[in-house]
Design a protein around this nucleic acid. Structure first.
Lengths: 266, 266
DNA sequence: CGGTGTGTTGAAAGGTGTCAATGCTAGTGG
DNA sequence: CCACTAGCATTGACACCTTTCAACACACCG
């Protein structure tokens, strides 16, 4: 059920058949029953998807921000570069995630958005965005919810970088990616397709490439994960979560509260 | 011009006379000329300010989220705790900043909000928040801008933790705090009142208390800063910025773009 | 006056980075 | 068809940044 896409120089990334992407509905339906009109509006957002290759950029540092982007398939890395070449990946944008939800509100950014894999996305201009806020306030609320979730993910990344050991950090990141993909239906039981190089992991976790390599080997030796060029398998999720101080509450317990739901429904 | 507030156990924190706080207008006026009605709406937000002591909590982990908070005076730290006692401060909330802009959208949080100093704040219930979005869409846009700025600050914090040395991290943090306070008019030439303990700095930068102490001493010895119990002075801002790889663009270059401004103004 | 919170300093241990070299696979061009 | 290159994964040895442990100074407070 998976198609082989030839990518860049020597790495393959398998694209799943459901890459057409209804992961946004999937996320939102967990919070709220959408009306047919709202579903239509969401469908319309991705009416004319675009494709872009691995290693290409959705946005470059110091370039003007174009528009809000909804990722339908593939991984995007958001990172910042230092003058001396050091690089820090701030976050990964996965299918169903937004980029630049605030795009309309800033002139330029000092961050870059690079495709880790081939990416299918829908771009949403400021007009469309404003229209959405007027015509579908409930969807607007869900978009804000999405922004709030990103905030929580970023906050946890700060904890990871600031207070976890290399071993914990690595396991923690792998778990986050696994669970985020699970929530949009992109897992295969205990496996996900995993396109990150060890260098990308290093630039995410604030570690050296060499140390990431050693750490991954330890995780493998400890029977917690299995990794190939293309896939990551979580062999023992509870054990890995324990070993990584991974508390998945930051990705859950984030339902819309009743008080607010009633307003949206009423 | 400064009042001595006795705080907790043995630390004093000077409260400035302009702690009554028009820093929100100050921030927004840099982006947009506000109408009298909008000014009134902003004033109304802080019509009934509340006070809370140093070391008290605006929110505790696992407690339900109450409401959106606008900080008028004082510092708040947002942090997460690990089961083994490790702590990571995610961000500092300064006068003019919002907390829980998404409050209405989540049930509970796994983060805590603790006052570093005595704090004056205005709480904004979900109703008021929704009303604001309906009646003052331009203010709503500015609130979103504010959320986007927080995102940029968090992203830079990730870079700080992931790719800067202890020396760079420390200088970088001090500069960020200085500049953020400068933008809301809370600097005294090259000084700010500085309530953080070395332990708080350590929990922010992902370092040990001891190493923070040594690093601060180095910064002092290098003639870049001066610190007392109460104040921080940036002696040579350009030099400190160079030494810390501090690129203030993440706090600037964030004006509202023309395309959007015209919509708001029209 | 002792107690607590904070700042300071030294010495030793340890986690992580750097440097360097190797193997492997896929793609390229002769 | 086979060198040859490029990108990535892997490993060992060593250096160093940062942590940990421990002790002490100082201010404020009850």
């Amino acid at each position: 059920m998976s198609v082989q896409n030839t990518v860049g120089s020597g790495r393959r990334y398998p694209t799943r058949s459901h890459a057409t992407g209804d992961m946004l509905e999937r996320k939102f339906e967990r919070l709220l029953d959408l009306t047919p009109e709202e579903r239509d509006a969401l469908h319309e957002l991705r009416a004319t998807p675009k494709n872009i290759e691995s290693r290409e950029f959705l946005m470059c540092a110091d370039e003007p921000i174009r528009e809000t982007v909804l990722v339908l398939a593939g991984w995007v890395s958001r990172y910042k570069s230092l003058s001396d070449g050091r690089r820090q990946i701030v976050s990964f944008v996965l299918p169903g995630d937004f980029i630049n939800l605030y795009a309309a509100l800033f002139e330029i950014s000092d961050e870059s958005l690079e495709c880790v894999t081939p990416v299918t996305y829908a771009s949403i201009g400021p007009d469309k965005m404003l229209g959405l806020f007027h015509e579908h306030p409930r969807l607007a609320a869900l978009l804000c919810w999405s922004a709030g979730e990103n905030d929580a993910i970023l906050a946890e990344h700060v904890v990871r970088l600031g207070r976890l050991s290399a071993y914990e950090r690595t396991g923690h990141l792998l778990l986050e990616l696994f669970i985020r993909l699970e929530r949009v239906g992109l897992t295969d039981d205990t496996s996900i397709s995993f396109p990150l190089t060890q260098e990308a992991i290093a630039d995410t976790l604030g570690l050296s490439l060499v140390h990431v390599n050693r750490t991954l080997r330890r995780l493998r030796n400890d029977g917690l994960i299995e990794m190939s060029d293309e896939f990551l398998t979580i062999l023992d999720l509870p054990a890995l979560a324990r070993a990584s101080k991974f508390d998945r509450r930051y990705l859950e317990n984030r339902n819309l509260p009743e008080t607010f739901l009633s307003k949206l429904l009423g």
